[in-house]
Each structure stands twice: as C-alpha cells, then as structure tokens.
C-alpha cells in the first residue's frame, strides 16, 4: 500500500516530460535536414526574463564526456554543470528536459519527434546549409513549461530559441570549436 502511494507521488512529481509516442505528421524524419553531431561548441546564451524585464547574457562552451554534457559558463561567472541523468544535483525539470536538449544538439530528429511536432515554417527556401525548424511539444506536461523551440542551422545546429510558457526566452548561438582545445581548457580551469 505504502509503496503504491509513494510511487504514485513520485511518478506524478517527476513526470514533466512523459510523452506518448505519437508521431508528428508535420514532417517525416526523412524530410528533415541531416545534422552532424556537435561534439563540442562554444555558445552565447541570452536569457530574457519577462517578469523582471531583464536579459542575462552569458558565454561559454560545452563538450561531451562519456554520457554527460559538460556545460561550462565562462562569463559572467565561472560555472560548470554536468548535464547527465545520473547527476543528483540537477533540477528535476532539467533532468527530464535533458533528452530534449541532447536531441537538439545532436540533431536527432527521431528522438525529438517522440516529444515534439517538428514543423518546417519555410520548407521551400530551406537548403541543407540553411534550414529552420519549429518544435511544438506534443505533450501537455511539456507544453505547460515550454511553448516552442525554434532551431536553425546548416551542417550543424547554429541557433536554438527556447520559448518557455512563462514568457521567458533563451537564445543559444552555437559556434563550432576544437574539442581538444576545449578539453584542455576544462582540465585547467
């Protein structure tokens, strides 16, 4: 009895991104641009906080290490977060968003289509070097937090605009970087 109650609570509380595997009819995986996996990149991030009417800018880089994504902010503060499902310190909401984030960075459309309807707002003008895609959550639980994600790029994903339900926005601009250099920077912070 106790276990049922507890599990139900746990499930209810952790389940923010549980999505039924309904496939988006908007774009099939085959029609979506092939994207190379970004092993690492430098980023600039702009977080627009609607309720404070403020924008927070930061720069840094990310790189992959084992199963984790090391997210290193270098300015304005030095902060490193290990983005991995087994990191107990991650906020719960982020843990369930993790597959989305890695799916975006990997350009893994198939994985993303489990959670999002992928639309091509400008499909005719898209080329393999310049394309845009809009991801709208399929699942109410995700939609409650996340309004949509706009991705754009060429060979790799170059910009990600995440629009949250509370009107906050995050814009990420990614530029390819030499992984070895970044790794060295990581070793000697």
């Amino acid at each position: 009895m106790l276990l049922i109650r507890h599990a139900a609570l746990a499930v209810a509380l952790t389940l923010v991104a549980a999505a039924p595997a309904a496939q988006a009819e908007d774009a099939s995986a085959a029609e979506l641009p092939a994207i190379e996996l970004s092993q690492c990149a430098r980023f600039t991030q702009e977080r627009e906080m609607a309720d404070l009417d403020t924008t927070l800018k930061s720069t840094g880089y990310f790189l992959r290490r084992d199963d984790a994504l090391i997210w290193q902010t270098t300015r304005p503060v030095d902060d490193r977060v290990r983005l991995a499902a087994d990191n107990p310190d991650l906020p719960r909401a982020l843990k369930v968003m993790l597959p989305v984030l890695t799916g975006l960075l990997d350009g893994n459309w198939e994985a993303l289509q489990e959670h999002f309807a992928v639309k091509r707002p400008d499909a005719e003008r898209d080329t393999p070097d310049a394309w845009q895609a809009r991801l709208v959550p399929l699942d109410d639980a995700v939609a409650e937090r996340l309004e949509r994600i706009d991705a754009a790029g060429g060979e790799r994903v170059e910009t990600l605009k995440i629009r949250f339900a509370n009107a906050d926005r995050i814009t990420l601009r990614l530029t390819p970087a030499d992984c070895a250099t970044l790794a060295a920077e990581t070793e000697t912070p």
Binding site: L9, A10, L13, T14, Q45, R47, M49, D51, L52, L56, S58, G60, W71, T73, V77, D79, V81, L83, P91, R92, A93, L94, M97, L98, V100, L101, R145, L146, I162, F164, A165, N166, D168, I170, L172
Partner: peptide, 29 residues
C-alpha cells in the same frame, strides 16, 4: 548562478532564484 546559466530550465529568478521548491520536491521524492 548555476540555475541562471544552465539552459533548459525555466528557473524563475523573481520567484525562486535558489530553487527552494526544487530542493523541497527532491527531498520529498
């Protein structure tokens, strides 16, 4: 700071800059 600069979190600086609720729920679960 970590919450502010980590992508993917709709961390509300105004309501909960230190993630009080996240920590509470984490402990409950």
């Amino acid at each position: 700071l970590s919450r502010l600069f980590t992508p993917g979190v709709d961390a509300s600086l105004k309501k909960d800059p230190f993630g009080l609720l996240d920590a509470w729920l984490e402990a409950r679960l």
